[in-house]
Design a protein around this nucleic acid. Structure first.
Length: 112
DNA sequence: CGGGTGACAGACC
DNA sequence: TGGTCTGCCACCC
């Protein structure tokens, strides 16, 4: 088993844990997967996912709420559509992370 | 072994 | 509020 596979499994588990109607940033997933500061690696791992994957990869966004894919990309539209079906709408091409970002640990009430 | 790359993030105008 | 630039670190060639 390669190290990459090991990281990939941790990333898969973290992504799978994102509840519907919530989103997470790449950096957040990396941290949950036990590989802090490896957001770009998370992106690479998610990129390798098959089209028919059951993982909610569409719930992973950039830290600023933007979809990582180019706007003219087919994946971009697909991700935006899936998020919309979960009640998450992008305003101005961005998602309000303040409202929709998943708090995996919920230490307290960060907002409010 | 060295250099380029990226589904990012944070700092800075 | 928002666009741009730089740092980052593993992966690939």
């Amino acid at each position: 088993m390669s190290a990459m596979q090991n990281h990939a499994e941790a990333v898969w588990a973290s992504v799978a844990a994102i509840p519907a109607g919530r989103v997470a940033s790449y950096g957040q997933i990396a941290q949950l997967a036990g590989i802090p500061r490896h957001a770009r690696l998370v992106g690479r791992i998610l990129r390798e996912l098959p089209t028919d994957t059951a993982l909610p990869w569409h719930r992973v966004l950039r830290a600023d709420g933007r979809i990582a894919f180019p706007e003219d990309s087919e994946k971009h539209l697909q991700q935006k559509t899936r998020l919309s079906s979960e009640g998450i709408q992008a305003q101005g091409g961005k998602v309000r992370m303040r409202d929709y970002q998943w708090q995996a640990e919920t230490p307290c009430g960060p907002t409010s």
